[in-house]
C-alpha cells in the first residue's frame, strides 16, 4: 500500500534504504535526490535539528538490526510488504524508525557537548552533507592526480559521518583529560556521565508530521 501523501522523492529516499525504488514513483530517481527533502527537520534536540537525511543514514545503519530482531523474535522473512507487516503489534518500519531516532538523539547530544566546548563548530546535518560531498569531490580529484588518499576512494555517507563523529569524540576526551588532569579511565567515566546527563536533560521535540510520513509500501 502506498500512502497518498507520500512525497515522490521522499518515497524513494526510504526505498533507497529499505529496498528497490519502484519505477512508478518518479521514473527511477532512487537516491536522496533532493536536498530539500534530506534537509527536512524530523526532530530537534535542545533546538538543534535532526534532519531527514541524517535519520535516513542511521536507518541504513540500523536496517540489519531490525531485520535480525524480527527474524529472531517472529521468524520474519523478507516479503514485498515486509516493512509494514504487523507482527503481534510491531512493524519493522516503526521499530527501525524508533531505533534510528534514538541513535540520532544520542549522537546529537554528544555533538552539542562537543560544540559547547568549541571542539566542533558545525553539527547541523546540512553542513555535514556539504562537507561529505566536498570530501568525495576532493578524493576523486586526488585519485586522478595520484595524490595521497586514505580510506575508501569514495566515502559512503554513513562511513564519513562516523569518521567525523569518532574524531570529534576523541578530541573532546583529549581536551577533558588535559583540562582537568584526568586519567584515561577517569576521562571515559566523565564523558559517559556527561552523555547520560545530556540525554536525561535534553529537550527533545519530534516533528510528528514528518516522522509519521516515513513509510514505505
Amino acid at each position: 500500500m502506498i500512502k497518498k501523501r507520500l512525497g515522490v522523492i521522499f518515497a524513494c529516499l526510504l526505498a533507497a534504504i529499505l529496498g528497490g525504488c519502484a519505477v512508478h514513483h518518479d521514473g527511477g530517481k532512487e537516491s536522496i535526490a533532493s536536498n530539500v527533502h534530506a534537509d527536512e527537520i524530523v526532530a530537534k534536540v535542545n533546538g538543534e535539528p535532526i534532519r531527514l537525511g541524517e535519520l535516513a543514514l542511521l536507518m541504513a545503519r540500523k536496517r540489519s538490526e531490525t531485520i535480525r530482531y524480527f527474524f529472531d523474535t517472529y521468524q520474519a522473512e523478507d516479503s514485498a510488504e515486509y516493512w509494514t507487516t504487523d507482527y503481534e503489534g510491531e512493524r519493522p518500519i516503526d521499530w527501525l524508525k524508533a531505533a534510528a531516532l534514538e541513535e540520532a538523539v544520542r549522537i546529537k547530544v554528544q555533538q552539542i557537548i562537543a560544540k559547547d566546548e568549541g571542539i566542533v563548530e558545525r553539527i547541523d546535518y546540512t553542513a555535514f552533507r556539504e562537507d561529505w560531498q566536498k570530501e568525495n569531490e576532493r578524493r576523486l580529484k586526488a585519485a586522478e592526480k595520484k595524490e595521497l588518499l586514505y580510506g575508501p576512494l569514495q566515502y559512503e555517507e554513513n562511513t564519513y559521518y562516523d569518521y567525523l563523529f569518532s574524531n570529534m569524540v576523541l578530541q573532546y576526551k583529549e581536551m577533558l583529560r588535559e583540562r582537568d588532569g584526568l586519567s584515561v579511565a577517569e576521562g571515559e567515566r566523565r564523558y559517559e556521565e556527561q552523555v547520560t546527563k545530556g540525554l536525561g536533560s535534553a529537550a527533545k521535540a519530534t516533528e510528528w508530521e514528518v516522522y509519521n510520513r516515513i513509510e514505505t509500501q
Partner: peptide
C-alpha cells in the same frame, strides 16, 4: 543487482 541498499546476509541465526 537492482537498486537500493546492499543485499543483506544476516548470519545471526
Amino acid at each position: 543487482y537492482g537498486t537500493g541498499s546492499r543485499p543483506l546476509i544476516n548470519g545471526g541465526s
